[in-house]
């Protein structure tokens, strides 16, 4: 079984506990204005073009009438101005990459499937998770949760930990920021917590969008109705994805990087239960 993957990061220290291998699935059903991985939105392979470092050497010249995203132009580009994002991988190949780091996982490390929205490739994800579990790897799924509960049910037995993004509590604002309301997202989160699954709630902190007291009090209020998540992480907005928008010919909506004081204050609204990464 094969799926669309746009990156595998070995030795990720920020996608869950311990040392992890993060597998980034391509394709997402949200379009968050602050997303730092715009190449993850489409499930199909894409060519990124960084025109600032292009020397116009012509090495990438292509005779094909329509780009089939074969990636040859990126392969021969001498400056890295062209990059191919996305490839089709077999679950076994993913497993091989994950196993190559096994010796470093220790007690709490393992694999994290992320995206994009990894749960959109439900069967592929499920297969990858199963293979990892069969090989003694601890598994985490990083999701925004905007999928039917059935998708969760399919992977529950093979998932040790969910990294669950909660972006905005107000559903209307959520729709304006991400293109979708949050009813299904919160419903799934509640079910996961109620089911006793290990969950880390992760909140991207986006100045002007969700960095206000009301949003965080609403989150607190929601979480109080369920068993507590194992951890709440605040993920401050960063600008590292901005150049990729231009490279994809997309428009970037930059935000300010939140101040430490802001993050501390927001964490305080959650009674200090949140940690800032």
């Amino acid at each position: 079984m094969k799926g669309s993957v746009f990156d595998i990061v070995h030795c990720s220290l920020v996608d869950g506990p311990g040392v992890r291998t993060s597998v980034f699935f391509k394709g997402c059903n949200l379009s968050c204005t602050w997303c730092h991985n715009p190449e993850s939105h489409s499930a199909a392979p894409e060519i990124l073009y960084y025109k600032d470092i292009c020397t116009g050497c012509g090495a990438c010249r292509c005779e094909k009438p329509v780009c089939d995203r074969c990636g040859h132009c990126a392969l021969v580009c001498p400056t890295g101005a062209k990059k191919l994002s996305g490839s089709t991988m077999a679950a076994e190949a993913v497993l091989e990459e994950v196993l190559s780091d096994k010796v470093f996982y220790g007690e709490d490390g393992g694999v994290t499937f992320s995206g994009g929205e990894c749960m959109l490739q439900r069967e592929f994800l499920s297969h990858c998770l199963q293979l990892c579990k069969e090989n003694g790897i601890q598994t985490a799924v990083d999701t925004a949760g905007n999928v039917p509960w059935a998708a969760f049910e399919a992977i529950l037995p093979y998932t040790d930990l969910f990294l669950y993004d909660v972006k905005v509590m107000d559903s209307g604002l959520h729709k304006r920021c991400t293109g979708s309301g949050n009813a299904q997202i919160l419903d799934n989160l509640g079910k996961l917590l109620d089911a006793g699954k290990r969950v880390w709630v992760r909140v991207p902190v986006i100045p002007g969008m969700n960095d206000n007291k009301e949003n965080f009090l609403a989150l607190k209020s929601f979480l109080q109705q369920h068993p507590a998540p194992e951890k709440i992480e605040l993920l401050p907005y960063h600008a590292m994805g901005e150049t990729k928008y231009a490279a994809l010919g997309k428009t970037c909506h930059p935000f300010a990087v939140p101040e430490k004081e802001t993050l501390d204050a927001l964490a305080a609204h959650l009674d200090g239960a949140a940690v800032r990464r």
């Binding site: 070995h10 030795c11 190559s100 470093f104």
Partner: peptide, 8 residues
């Protein structure tokens, strides 16, 4: 492939 691969 990062530091874990390099170390190995």
């Amino acid at each position: 492939k990062g530091i874990t691969a390099l170390m190995q």
